[in-house]
């Protein structure tokens, strides 16, 4: 297991490097620049600005400088929000965004897996049909529809939860955004769990566990569930990517001061260091959670780690 984990971890840095390199050059290839505005700047001012931020150097040199700074933990200055470094902006927004994303993922797993198990065990019965309908709805409705709907019900009619905004230290402000973000993921998790558990319950080793008289509970928890979760774990990678991109919308809908807005605003402004900083952070986050998924895979299936 240790060597499997080490091999997975060793793949982390090169992958992140590929992500950084690709986004760095693609960003620069895109038309426009940080100082293009409706009114053109005087050439001398523009040249001064570019010299200040090192944008007049050859691209490869800029890239090398960026990497060197990054290794020292320096994301560089924001080109548009002049008083802040990119590191400051990330430190402001990221904790909230990360909390939101992780809360949504956990919620999706905590709801999706049991729902999938129940549906598989009560196949073609009422509970199964209900789950199917809910899952289809959760997948079909975009979050900018479900978000306001949930806010309407839980915020305005029932008055259980705040409809939006953020107060530090008040997790109830996160409840509705996390729920909205979690819904489609939970639906996918439930469907995957149901389908794969049904398949595993028909596998020869489950039959032979039943033939040993181990009882329904032990057969389910001890023999069937772990192999059945393999596809769910594989889905965690894409799910993380979904949650990361989904949180951009959710933060806007619920007015949360997370870091998602910096990515969007940075991209529109061609604020190169800001976009790069967000990509590095979100990339590292996505890769870490994928790493967790890989390690879970090794735990679920001993064949994977011995291969």
């Amino acid at each position: 297991m240790l060597s499997y984990a080490l091999r997975r971890i060793a793949g982390f840095v090169p992958t992140l490097l590929v992500v950084i390199t690709a986004s760095f050059f693609v960003m620069r290839l895109a038309p426009g620049g940080p100082f293009d505005q409706e009114q053109a700047l005087p050439p001398a001012v523009r040249a001064n600005l570019e010299r200040l931020y090192g944008l007049d150097e050859p691209l490869t040199l800029q890239y090398a400088h960026y990497l060197r700074a990054l290794v020292h933990g320096d994301f560089g200055p924001s080109l548009r929000q002049r008083d802040f470094t990119v590191g400051d902006l990330i430190a402001q927004g990221l904790p909230l965004s990360a909390t939101l994303g992780i809360a949504a993922l956990l919620l999706a797993l905590l709801v999706g897996i049991p729902a999938g198990i129940v549906a598989a065990l009560r196949r073609d019965r009422l509970a199964d049909y209900c789950l199917n309908v809910f899952a289809a709805l959760a997948l079909a409705l975009p979050s900018f529809v479900t978000g306001p709907l949930l806010a309407l019900v839980f915020g305005l009619y029932l008055r259980w939860l705040p409809v939006g905004g953020w107060q530090p230290g008040a997790p109830r402000y996160l409840a509705l955004p996390a729920l909205t973000l979690a819904l489609p993921v939970a639906a996918n998790v439930a469907r995957l769990t149901r389908a794969s558990l049904l398949e595993v319950l028909g596998a020869p080793y489950v039959r032979s566990a039943r033939a040993r008289g181990l009882g329904a509970a032990r057969v389910l928890w001890g023999h069937a569930l772990r192999p059945a979760l393999t596809p769910v774990v594989s889905y965690l990678g894409p799910a993380v990517a979904f949650v990361v991109t989904g949180s951009l919308v959710i933060e806007t809908v619920f007015g949360l001061p997370g870091s998602g807005r910096y990515l969007v605003q940075g991209a529109i402004d061609r604020d190169y260091p800001l976009v790069m900083g967000m990509i590095v952070v979100y990339g590292a986050l996505t890769l870490s959670l994928n790493l967790v998924a890989d390690l879970l895979h090794g735990w679920l299936d001993p064949g994977v780690r011995h291969e």
Partner: peptide
């Protein structure tokens, strides 16, 4: 009672020993 018979009364050996053993245990 049936579980008890399966476990302690009748032992069963199946054809394909790979797929009849639980892979993760």
């Amino acid at each position: 009672m049936l579980d008890h018979v399966r476990g302690a009364g009748i032992g069963m050996v199946f054809q394909d020993p790979m797929s009849s053993l639980t892979p993760h245990l």
